[in-house]
Design a protein around this nucleic acid. Sequence first.
DNA 1: CGACTTTTTGAACGGCATCAACGACTGTGG
DNA 2: CCACAGTCGTTGATGCCGTTCAAAAAGTCG
Lengths: 243, 243
Amino acid sequence: MNQGFLAERLGRYLRLVESERDALGELGEAERLVPRGTVLRAEQASARELYVVERGWLYSSILLPDGNRQILSIHLPCEFAGDAGMPWDKAPFTLIAATDAMVRIIDKAALRALFERHPRLGLLLYTLAQAERVALADRLASVGRTSAKARVAALICDISSRLRAGGEDVTHGIPLPLTQEEIGDATGLTAVHVNRMMRQLAEEGLIARTHGRVHILDETRLAGVANHIDRFATIDTSWLPTG
Amino acid sequence: MNQGFLAERLGRYLRLVESERDALGELGEAERLVPRGTVLRAEQASARELYVVERGWLYSSILLPDGNRQILSIHLPCEFAGDAGMPWDKAPFTLIAATDAMVRIIDKAALRALFERHPRLGLLLYTLAQAERVALADRLASVGRTSAKARVAALICDISSRLRAGGEDVTHGIPLPLTQEEIGDATGLTAVHVNRMMRQLAEEGLIARTHGRVHILDETRLAGVANHIDRFATIDTSWLPTG
DNA sequence: CGACTTTTTGAACGGCATCAACGACTGTGG
DNA sequence: CCACAGTCGTTGATGCCGTTCAAAAAGTCG
């Protein structure tokens, strides 16, 4: 699996042929280790590359002039990071490592070559970009129109189902290596209120917490209060060309 | 410009060659007239197609179980609508006409053919999808981390700069054919509070309002209270293959 | 152990929601 | 041309959810 993080991710959605696997394997130029808390790429920094998370978690965020921060999305292993910056030569967001992490660096030019030589993979990447857009839209609905408790629940549900989609065993709790401050920045709340909502979810028997991990006790009810829809579970690639 | 809405839009970012223009012209199968308030496509409805707005405004929204609604994005003339639904066979959002509108219908299969025959256009579509994702992220930051006044201001700035990017003359005010209820659903506020914030923006001399139109009096200050960044003005396609 | 970050809890405040009512406008049918 | 209904905009009064401020407890790392 050494050269295969990208192929593994894309292979979840499409049966890849040999030449496609090879092309994906050659895509990444270099790896980079990013210790927890480090800025991998700052807003407005030059952005000629994108990343694939190989280990650890990253997140992208925007800093507002008044010092407020919004975390836009969390990037789990095997997912892209920084790909939303493609349309610009300066990064629109800041990328930070939530845990010690390892990323593989992919150059824009390499992505261009991939689209030209493997249009089918291009179409798949397009499709996945649209799926990310929908994920962001779901978060917008959560932040714009639901209560604090629902937002925190939604974050937990989202991470859980993405970890599960990534093949991780979720039955014995999931890691949640984010400070309550970070959870607040992701959900549009203060750290103080995040704390209260987590406690409330625990008191209601929906989750249990143990230093850095969360155990989902009642998945159905939690998804209910969160208004969660697991969209990534049902991605339809049947209309893509066959390899 | 009869066959060229898509070519016109994409031509803003890339100098298209003849064969590409032809391919884009043949992409749309049919047109459809959508009167104001009509649902073009409901959440969960079968979704084998996407749309290009030819006239009028649409918006996509999610309806929460409690009856709350979040408007996710507004689709202006020459923009795509429903393209975020590509990864699924059921539509993730509802598409509604904000004004009487005309859309051109594009089949998923036609898009697939476009990617295969014109990888460069595929890459451009991928890039634009990422740009839409960033626009959504900016809205998330607005809704999650700014005041009611800032959110309303941001909506006005966003629409204004997109209309301008579309070639519309913005100096004598912009149309805003949305009810305050709809503006509230887009910004995560109630219609009542939208009203108050609009009045406040007017009292502060930032905007002027006349039935259905808004005049931006002080663009710099308005962009300031909105934390607005005009990202679409600077899309960089220099790394794409040359035609 | 000491400095720092993170979590937790309490008390008081405020922005936005909620509820309610009225006015302005639009279209429709008599 | 007017009566009427329906939608939308406007304004006031009240209340609650989440913020802000403050401080202590618990965890982490040198």
